[in-house]
Write a protein that binds this DNA or RNA. Structure first.
Ligand code: SF4
Ligand code: SF4
Lengths: 161, 161
DNA sequence: CATATAATGGACATTACAGGTCCATAATAA
DNA sequence: TTATTATGGACCTGTAATGTCCATTATATG
């Protein structure tokens, strides 16, 4: 289990857009050469971000992308959910919900097993809650907040130059 | 991004072993028929769990698997790390560590770009911390604790029967 | 209007990996 | 010795991520 490259690209593209900002449209060429991704591939990603309302795009001369809302209003969770999808990380394998098989009931009912639970399967509960912990954190961090972090780092590495 | 089926199977298998317990070895046949997984596939998973010291296995007649330590000492994180691997969820795409490309530096140095950061890249920081939130939660929950949850659920669904 | 520019979306091709099977081998109890 | 049971290597398969190509559409500019 890993985040897809698309998510990495998407996050970085948004960081770049946030840095540039001020009405200026940033073209796919600029983005792709900055990130080292192909134009075609990155454009797919940008397209998804647009469809989900994270960026605006304008075609034609001087066209390109810009953030659709303030960088402080775009959370990491937004980006992850667009590019990784919104399914749960943990998916049950029998039917859609609840069970938890027991050893004893094994041979008896192979197709409609006598399972122990209703809604509150503890395995799924733990896994979903774990996912929630991560998502909560991702939701608390925005492109802007990351950019601020970057700023302070910038300062201290600039001195090295 | 999703947890693999292997993780689901692994967790369930351990739940079953914990339920049975008391010196008795549970064979792959029992496990696979309870979970609805093939013997061959599940045995690979069990093998991994054994290599990582979560279960013990004994071959031959009356052989099978049992927990290698108390169910309360096996965390969800243990299982996830064995079956999903221990790499970080978020992987950087240029080089191994730090940068964050800037638009301006794009055309200049295509191969060794002038990046802004040392260790503290904010994007990676956020993503790694998010992962940590999830892992912390997974570490706090054990096969035993899930089983306890299960017990209480059992009680209230048993009345329905 | 004509033209150059730039994003879009559909249709591919490629690659990687999860998921799954098979079998020969080794270990163990009876 | 025999039946049983886990092991691990080799292999196959399907699907999703990655990546490319192109025809179309939209826009600014002169
Ligand atoms: S986690 Fe619970 S509900 Fe999901 S498959 Fe397992 S037993 Fe069933
Ligand atoms: S997250 Fe930071 S360190 Fe990682 S690739 Fe992006 S800029 Fe580089």
């Amino acid at each position: 289990m890993q985040f897809s490259k698309s998510t990495a690209y998407g996050l970085h593209a948004l960081m770049l857009l946030a840095k540039s900002e001020r009405g200026r449209n940033v073209g796919i060429k600029e983005l792709s050469s900055s990130l080292g991704a192909s134009e075609s591939y990155l454009s797919k990603i940008m397209s998804k971000l647009r469809q989900d309302g994270l960026v605006r795009a304008v075609t034609g001369v001087n066209g390109g992308y810009e953030l659709a809302r303030a960088a402080s209003e775009i959370t990491f969770l937004d980006v992850v959910q667009v590019l990784e999808g919104r399914q749960h990380l943990y998916e049950c394998f029998h039917g859609s919900d609840h069970p938890l098989p027991s050893l004893e009931a094994a041979g008896d009912e192979p197709e409609t097993p006598e399972f122990a639970f209703g809604e509150g399967c503890p395995v799924k509960q733990v896994m979903d809650a774990a996912e929630l912990q991560m998502n909560r954190y991702l939701q608390q961090h925005t492109i802007q907040s990351a950019l601020n972090q970057a700023g302070s780092c910038d300062a201290h590495t600039a001195s090295k130059k």
